[in-house]
Design a binder for these strands. Structure first.
Lengths: 339, 339
DNA sequence: ATGTTTCGGGAGAGCGCTCTCCCATGTGTC
DNA sequence: GACACATGGGAGAGCGCTCTCCCGAAACAT
């Protein structure tokens, strides 16, 4: 706006000192006599001075803001964004870390391709010093775009191959092991699994982790069917599983939605859950709690991961260059009624 | 970051023209020969130039960004923020308007008092050109702070007295009238209402609108009990209502939560809804759809209001000064099962 | 052929700030 | 008393951009 407020010059005149001195007082004070500091502070208050961030950024090359980017390639994004508590948990993890460092958190949503371009442009121009990115789809091009633009970036989840940036992720294999051990401990000896497309690294880890853990426990070969992370595909996979292996007594699905689909199919077939077949999901999404029965599932420590992600970004900013630091987190088993 | 990319100067050298010409091409082109434009564009592409927003803002006094501020004074804010679809609807209304004008939307959350101060500071320094604010509490001090800082501001909901800024709001009286007429039309002749604290202007409008509409229809005096917008208080108010006026056949609550509380109490007392007593809520929040039975309620055209709010802000920005334009919207009755 | 307008493009002055010099004082040492 | 040496604070050079001038050349009118 044209609201040209008072400038350093004005405050300096008011306080009877030089511009440089006011600047020293306003920022980290270095070698300024206490009485002068007082005079300057008084002048600042009197004039209602607020530093011009543009001018400051021009010389410091810093904005003092960090972007929290929520990106998705699918449609009706905001509806999902503001109904899945997952994002709230991310925000809850990110905010305190930023606040503590007096860095302004700025939420950016990229709900479409044009939005994504505009967003990258904004950040390239210097809209924020770095970005903490939560991509909702594995194929989201945004992380790659940001990294290519030279922006310090940290992802929630592993980056696609070729994209060099920081990230945090869940130890998916460990999560699958938790599920396997829980099922085994509760006496299930013929478990199967509903995996997801091989293209998703996350899904492969969960599958491999599950079979490896069961092998270690002494189980035989584990029947596997693939879904596409949707409830419908989980339902279909369950049907195939049951047709081919009528004796299975447990199912581990690579996400909650598919687990829910599996439950639905089991209910349709009149198979008791967890009586005859136990079901374990993954993610602890809303779907898990709302299912019938409520799903036993593997939960990510989202707040912790988000906080760590933010920490990694701040490290990059302190270092003055994009980095590739990463952290892997341990999952937690949430036992509800389905297993 | 220290990523000092190419500057106008570099591009100018590359293209064999002056800084000014490159600037002309990069921004709205004015009087530049087509072949030179082409040369400049090629140079931009070759160098990977991105304008430095700080430098640009320093002279234009514009950032090209608008803040969408979500503010609340209560605790556990983000949990609420990311589970109530209301905010998703606001965002859905705001984004398209901003995108169309190539203005970068920036979401800011103010979940605590320190956060609020930091946010105002950020905006005063020139973090964005203006703010579209969604205060969740009537007593939220943030709008006042922003207006006092001279920032172009538009509120969702009427500002508190003394705060001069733009706003959009729902015609609450009209909404209450919709409820009254619906109840009357369905044969209810002894309606009561659960109002909210007199301090909330919104609530007063709903109460007055309801009683006025009923008076116009020829109804007798309307029993009134007050709640505090919570489910529990709605339940208690319903209990008092029923104790004092056992013959009532309809209840209009000033929000969905209280309506739900009322339903719960009616169920506890074994009173059929809507059989014996019809219940109408207000807001069409999640609570309305999830209630048993699903609530008939008065809905705000949130997306439309958010879009209008954004339009008002852009008008202020075009005018170059904060303004006080406002718009009032007509509510919509959503008939479900409770009335 | 000269004067007048139009149009394209360059020069250069800032925007408000930070930060590196550098100078003017004090303070300590022999 | 002469020297070194902290220490506080001012001067001024940019940071990268926009935008107002201004000038040269081409197009038109006289």
């Amino acid at each position: 706006m044209g609201n040209r407020g008072p400038t350093l010059e004005d405050v300096a005149r008011e306080a009877g000192v030089s511009r440089a001195t006011v600047s020293r007082v306003v920022n980290g004070v270095r070698n300024v006599a206490p009485e002068i500091q007082e005079a300057v502070r008084a002048a600042v208050a009197r004039t209602g001075y607020a530093p011009n961030q543009a001018a400051r950024s021009l010389v410091t090359r810093r904005t003092g803001a960090v972007a929290l980017v929520l990106s998705a390639t699918g449609g009706s994004f905001t509806a999902r964004l503001f109904s899945d508590p997952f994002f709230g948990r991310v925000v809850d993890g990110v905010l305190p870390v930023l606040r503590e460092r007096a860095v302004q958190p700025v939420l950016l949503v990229a709900e479409s391709e044009p939005a994504r371009l505009q967003l990258v442009d904004y950040l390239r121009r210097g809209g924020a010093d770095g970005a903490v990115v939560v991509p909702l789809d594995e194929e989201d091009p945004l992380p790659g775009m940001l990294v290519a633009a030279g922006l310090p970036t940290v992802l929630f989840g592993r980056p696609r191959p070729g994209v060099r940036c920081g990230w945090v992720d869940l130890d998916n294999a460990a999560g699958a092991r938790l599920a396997a051990e829980h099922l085994w401990a509760s006496g299930r000896r013929r478990p199967a699994t509903i995996a997801a497309p091989v293209s998703a690294p996350t899904a492969r880890e969960r599958l491999d982790g599950f079979t490896a853990a069961l092998a270690a426990l002494g189980a035989g070969p584990v029947p596997v069917e693939r879904g596409r992370f949707t409830e419908e595909s989980g339902r279909d996979a369950m049907a195939r599983l049951l047709d081919r292996h009528p004796d299975i007594d447990a199912v581990f699905a690579a996400n909650d939605l598919m687990a829910r689909g599996a439950c639905r199919h089991l209910a349709e077939r009149g198979v008791a859950v967890p009586g005859s077949v136990a079901v374990v999901g993954f993610d602890d999404s809303v779907a898990a709690r709302d299912s019938a029965p409520p799903l036993t599932t593997v939960r990510q420590p989202v707040e912790e991961m988000a906080a760590a992600m933010t920490g990694l970004l701040l490290e990059q900013l302190d270092a003055g260059a994009p980095g590739t630091g990463a952290k892997v987190f341990a999952p937690v088993l949430v036992v509800r009624e389905s297993a």
